[in-house]
Amino acid sequence: MDISLFAIFLLACCAAGATGAVFKPGAWYKSLEKPWFTPPDWVFPVAWTSIYLLISFAGARLAVIEGNAYAMAFWAAQAALSTLWTPLFFGLRRIKGALLAMGPLWISVAGCTYTAFALDFWAGLAFVPYLIWVTVAAALNVEMWRLNPDVSPLSTD
């Protein structure tokens, strides 16, 4: 694996993850009714750090394989789409609106997982935890919307 490619993919992940530092959950999130399967707060940074390292590894492996166009397109799409969910959910408090970003994000992660497995077993395997995580996140998002129907989005006036 090319360590320079790994560093570039990790930098992209850190840029996407920066939205989590800008739009923190805070008191608003703590006040929401949450589903029974909501992970404890400490799980989120551990999961995201692990996922970013794994998908950077996958990206570096995939980048040098001939015929990688779809895998790289899905990798780029998931990186871009992952930057949308946090500002929608935590920044604008649009629980339902965040689902609009979650759908394409899930598709791009699933697409990257599938195309990665077709090219390189280890790259595909590295994406599996992310696919599981985004599936759980989608279920959490749906349940948060269902459990908190009267939550108003943040006013942007």
Rank of each mutant, 00 (worst) to 15 (best):
I95A: 04
W85N: 08
K30Y: 01
P45R: 07
G20W: 13
L10T: 11
S108K: 04
P129F: 14
A126R: 14
Y130R: 14
A18L: 14
A126P: 01
P129Y: 12
A71M: 00
L154T: 05
F9N: 04
D150V: 06
D41N: 15
S155H: 07
C13E: 15
P129D: 08
A76G: 07
E66Q: 12
K24C: 06
G111V: 02
E66M: 03
P153L: 01
V134I: 15
F121P: 05
W122Y: 13
F6G: 07
L5Q: 14
K34Y: 00
M72G: 07
V142L: 14
A27S: 12
C112Q: 13
F121H: 13
S50L: 14
A27T: 11
P87Q: 08
F121T: 13
A126N: 08
Y70A: 11
L131T: 08
A15M: 12
L5F: 09
V43D: 04
F89R: 06
K24L: 10
C14H: 11
S4W: 13
L99F: 11
M144N: 14
L140V: 08
W42C: 04
V134H: 05
F89P: 02
V136W: 12
K30L: 07
A58E: 10
I51M: 03
A16G: 11
L119N: 08
G26Y: 12
A27V: 02
A69E: 14
I107R: 01
A18T: 09
A116P: 01
W48Y: 10
S108D: 03
C112Y: 06
W28I: 04
G103I: 13
A116F: 08
G91T: 02
L140G: 01
A58T: 00
P129G: 11
L140Q: 09
A126K: 10
A126E: 12
T156D: 05
V109S: 05
F117P: 00
S108A: 15
T19W: 09
W42A: 12
G59W: 01
W75P: 03
D120Q: 03
P87C: 00
R61M: 02
G67D: 11
N68K: 00
P87M: 02
L11G: 15
L5T: 09
W42Y: 12
S155C: 09
A101Q: 00
W75T: 14
A76E: 02
G124L: 07
F117Y: 06
A137G: 04
G91H: 07
L88H: 07
P153A: 01
L32K: 07
G59H: 08
V46N: 10
A77E: 05
W28G: 09
A118N: 13
D157E: 10
A21W: 13
V142R: 05
L11P: 10
V46Y: 04
A137R: 04
L84A: 11
S56E: 09
D120V: 07
A71V: 03
